[in-house]
Design a protein around this nucleic acid. Structure first.
Lengths: 152, 152
DNA sequence: CATCTCGCAACAACAAAAGTTTCGAATTCC
DNA sequence: GGAATTCGAAACTTTTGTTGTTGCGAGATG
């Protein structure tokens, strides 16, 4: 099953944006992600609606962060891109009245519920500033190694 | 994203099979699941290869369990249908050398890893006999309510 | 006014499960 | 032995959702 990579991509991009002076255009971001500007606008739209970024048209326009990374969690971004389902495995509802199906789905459901709770807790506990710190630590270790800059 | 319902379906079917005298044909199982016999054969093939069921051709043929429900866990069935990915959300690998991407994916990865570990533990701890018991309890509570029988 | 840039709609590409059709092969019943 | 049953497998279509693409419109800047 195809995996949704929007969360990973948006986290990536926001951290880069924090290190950039001024606005980043959809085109620049698209190159950073190896995709195209329309996909970027589509996904960033959710972040804009939730108030994490702001977009400006015209010369010198583009996307800018509207709050510090320390005030954005991974969970916030997951919500901002539309709360996509975490799980690729689901329950069948072929015969909702069947007690066997109910017993099976109850067991599956409680397992997924517990796993989702864990994921949400973890996502809520990590801010983008934490990720940026993690980046800095990696940077310090493997100094001189180039990162993927906007000016690629 | 479309959810994979094979695990749920196979668990459902195996518990029904346990309550049936003799073999269940792909056709009967398909009706039970609201699908068609070819899909049933395709999915059951994995269970057969892993030794949980046996198939017989010809008159009176079909599928039979080859071991008690107490010796089959939910995890066994998940493996038997090909270990499909649990998660619909994944990490992007647009620039594997980018340290920001690495930091992001490391955080995402560790969250998913913990959630997967939890799922696997839970799945391994529940046998199909447990699910059958759960069914019996539901049956006792809501007596007289019809279940989805093969003879539908 | 020319250029840059986002906004949006419409559509194609792609991936994976699910559904369908159509063979063949093995088994059982008469 | 022949007919009916049933699985096995390949090939194809359908479906659903992400991703990619094209095109046009509307602000903003120089």
């Amino acid at each position: 099953m195809r995996r949704d990579s929007r969360l990973s991509r948006m986290l990536h991009v926001l951290i880069h944006m924090d290190r950039i002076d001024g606005a980043a255009t959809s085109d620049q971001i698209a190159q950073m992600l190896g995709t195209n500007p329309v996909v970027v606008r589509r996904t960033m739209a959710g972040l804009r609606d939730d108030g994490y970024v702001h977009s400006e048209k015209g010369h010198g326009g583009g996307w800018v962060l509207t709050r510090p990374l320390s005030e954005i969690t991974m969970l916030d971004i997951h919500r901002a891109i539309g709360n996509p389902a975490f799980f690729a495995v689901g329950v069948a509802v072929d015969h909702p009245e069947c007690l066997v199906e109910q017993a099976v789905n109850s067991a599956l459901g409680s397992a997924f519920e517990a796993a989702e709770k864990l994921l949400i807790e973890k996502f809520a506990s990590v801010t983008l500033a934490d990720l940026a710190d993690e980046f800095d630590q990696r940077m310090a270790k493997i100094a001189d190694k180039p990162t993927c800059e906007l000016s690629r």
